[in-house]
Structures are given as C-alpha cells and as structure tokens.
C-alpha cells in the first residue's frame, strides 16, 4: 500500500503558503536525492514514496539549488547559459519551486 498506488496529493499552486520570488534561497530537503538511473537512462529525484524522472532543465534547476544562491542569481546564470530571457526563466523556476515545496521536497532557506 505504500507504493505509488496511493492517491497523489494534488499540488494546488494557487494558494501558496510561502512567498517564493527572486530573493528565495532553496535546497533539497533531507531525504530528497538526485540520482542517475542507469537502468532506465534517466535522472531521477527520489523522495519518500516518490520517484520523479526529471528532464534536463529540471535537473539543472535542482543542481543549482545549493541553499546559498538566490533564484535571481540562478536565473541570471541560466539566462546567459541558455540564451533565454531571465524573467521567463525566473517565472518558470518559481512555479517549479512552489510545486516541489508543496510536495515537501525542498527546504526554503529564505
């Protein structure tokens, strides 16, 4: 019963409890790990009762969340790296952080 058959809690991004913006600093919560999955040829984020296959962008975001850099700084770095507008990247990252924070997979340091 503890498998992924359990009913997934729907992330309701319209009612965030904490403000997440460019000044936010986040890192993976204890017990949440990024791992290579050589058998399936993918990168997975492992958390209690969850295994999420991440795409390259999500992997890059998770790796950048070091508990030190603000989302603003990370978005600026990604903007340079991927040649995309910083504000778009920041908006995408905020949505990502909010969803993963609601799933209790991230610690918001500030």
């Amino acid at each position: 019963m503890t498998e992924d058959t359990a009913v997934e809690t729907g992330g309701n991004a319209s009612t965030p409890d904490i403000v997440i913006d460019g000044a936010t600093v986040a890192k993976l919560a204890r017990g949440v790990k990024l791992r290579e999955d050589p058998v399936r040829g993918q990168t997975v984020l492992l958390a209690p009762e969850r295994a999420l296959a991440l795409d390259d962008i999500a992997v890059a975001i998770v790796k950048a969340l070091d508990g030190v850099k603000t989302l603003d700084i990370i978005a600026a770095e990604f903007s340079e790296l991927f040649g995309a507008p910083k504000d778009d990247i920041l908006a995408d990252m905020i949505a990502f952080i909010r969803e993963f924070s609601n799933r209790r997979m991230l610690e918001i340091a500030r």
Binding site: M1, G11, R104
Partner: peptide
C-alpha cells in the same frame, strides 16, 4: 489537503468495500 498544503503531504487509501470500482492494486 488544502489547509495543510506545503506542511503535510496526505496520501489516502480509501475503503474499497464501499467503492464502485476497485483499486488499481
């Protein structure tokens, strides 16, 4: 689930003997 979003993730396995369809065991 709404009230505790971001605080407590709730997984819920309902009673299936009162259900219409079985669980995807």
């Amino acid at each position: 689930r709404k009230r505790l979003e971001g605080v407590l993730v709730i997984d819920y396995v309902a009673a299936d003997h009162h259900a219409r369809y079985p669980k995807a065991c």
